[in-house]
Simulated assay, not measured.
Amino acid sequence: MQRRSDERGEVLLDALLDGRSAPGLAARAAAVLGVPEQGRYAVAVVRVRPAGQLVDADGLRFFRRARADGELVVVALGDRDPAGLAPLLARWCPGPGGIGPVAEGLAGLGTARRLAEVALLTCVPGEEGIVRLEERLPAALVVSQPELSARLVADVFGPLLDLDPADRALLVRTLDAWLECGGSAGRAAGRLYCHRNTVLNRLRRLEQLTSRSLSRPRELIEMMLALDAFRLSVSPP
Rank of each mutant, 00 (worst) to 15 (best):
P82F: 07
A51L: 06
R216S: 05
Y193W: 04
L161F: 03
C93M: 11
L214Y: 11
V11H: 09
L214S: 10
L72W: 01
L88A: 13
F63C: 09
A166R: 15
T111Q: 03
S21I: 02
G98D: 04
A22L: 13
V199E: 07
D167R: 15
G52D: 07
S184C: 07
R212E: 05
V43Q: 08
V11F: 08
G186S: 15
A76Q: 03
V35L: 11
R61H: 08
L148G: 15
A139R: 12
V124Q: 09
I99F: 01
L232M: 05
F230L: 15
R114L: 04
A166W: 04
P125D: 12
G97K: 00
L120M: 02
S184M: 14
V45H: 13
R231I: 03
A29H: 02
D18I: 03
L227D: 02
R47I: 01
R91N: 08
E117K: 14
L170Y: 06
A185V: 04
A83P: 02
P36Y: 00
V74M: 10
S184K: 09
P23Y: 05
R196Y: 02
G24C: 06
V35Y: 01
A116Q: 03
L141W: 09
V48P: 00
A189P: 02
S5L: 07
V46I: 07
G9E: 00
S184N: 04
A188W: 05
A44R: 03
E128L: 13
G34Y: 12
V156M: 09
R168I: 08
L16I: 00
A22S: 12
G129N: 00
